[in-house]
């Protein structure tokens, strides 16, 4: 499965997985995301970069309607996944989130066993019929997340007892277990040490063959390492979006250039 297909050259051939048009996000009075338009390619990694408070995380959370859980947050515009508008009143955010999984900044395993952590998603969505099937989903997800060998002998132990990097990979396994089509990652490595970060980055690279991944990151090196496409956000605006190589070597916008050369941020 460890196939590394260079998708950079044939992105144009693929259909867009996610299409966002004129997206506005308001936090109460604050206009946090201003008129963002972006297309996200399937089976690739898209990185959102930009200085703190630029709205990249906020925008990421609109993609699986996590912002619904915040009372004062309001989203306008149109975001569709596979051509279906996710803000359509017919859409149940619960079903949407099964399709668009998410991994968070801080590893947040539930205070349950490793097995239960991974089995939680399939259970609530009723993805398996028998215990054997569930066992299989759990082990497959842990294998995909590259954690199987480390935890296969202690699936009954608490998920919170793992190291930070293992916890984050457990969270990724948990997200994969629901068989999402898109995985959103909100600075997944910011709480990890460099070795754990390298492992997670490696994992992201492997996962992109099956999943559409959108990752928010603070680190431009990370964006350059793992992503095929990069979008630069600044003060709620999407300044520039394009192939990662182009953004880092030949930015079109002055602000992008300033940012990647370290003038601000």
């Amino acid at each position: 499965m460890n196939v590394s297909v260079n998708l950079e050259n044939d992105v144009d051939l693929a259909q867009h997985k996610i299409v966002a048009k004129n997206v506005q996000v308001y936090y109460g009075e604050k206009h946090a995301i201003k008129d963002v338009n972006i297309n996200i390619q399937p089976c690739s990694v898209t990185a959102f970069i930009g200085p703190s408070g630029c709205g990249k995380s906020t925008f990421l959370r609109t993609l699986n309607r996590m912002n619904d859980t915040i009372d004062i947050c309001r989203v306008e515009g149109n975001i569709s996944i596979d051509g279906e508008n996710i803000y359509d009143p017919r859409v149940d955010p619960v079903q949407l989130r099964a399709k668009v999984g998410m991994v968070f900044q801080k590893p947040n395993p539930f205070p349950k066993s490793i097995y239960e952590n991974v089995a939680y998603g399939p259970r609530i969505h009723g993805l398996t019929r028998t215990k054997a099937e569930l066992d299989e989903v759990v082990s497959a997800s842990l294998q995909k997340a590259g954690l199987w060998n480390e935890v296969k002998d202690r699936l009954d132990e608490g998920g919170t007892g793992l190291s930070g990097g293992q916890q984050q990979r457990l969270c990724i396994a948990r997200a994969i277990a629901v068989s999402p089509e898109v995985i959103l990652m909100d600075e997944p490595c910011s709480a990890l040490d460099p070795i754990a970060t390298a492992k997670v980055e490696e994992l992201i690279d492997e996962l992109r063959s099956n999943y559409t991944i959108v990752i928010v990151t603070h680190s431009m090196q990370q964006a350059a390492r793992v992503s095929q496409r990069t979008a630069f956000f600044h003060l709620g605006n999407l300044v520039e979006e394009g192939a990662t190589q182009d953004i880092f070597t030949n930015p079109q916008d002055k602000r992008t250039q300033d940012y990647i050369t370290g003038r601000f941020g």
Binding site: N64, M66, V103, F104, N108, P111, Y120, V178
Partner: peptide, 21 residues
Amino acid sequence: PQSLRDGAYGLGSTRSETIRQ
């Protein structure tokens, strides 16, 4: 912690499932 709730919502739990489970 809110992060636990986020984790559950992110997997597609409903509110009541998040609360109960």
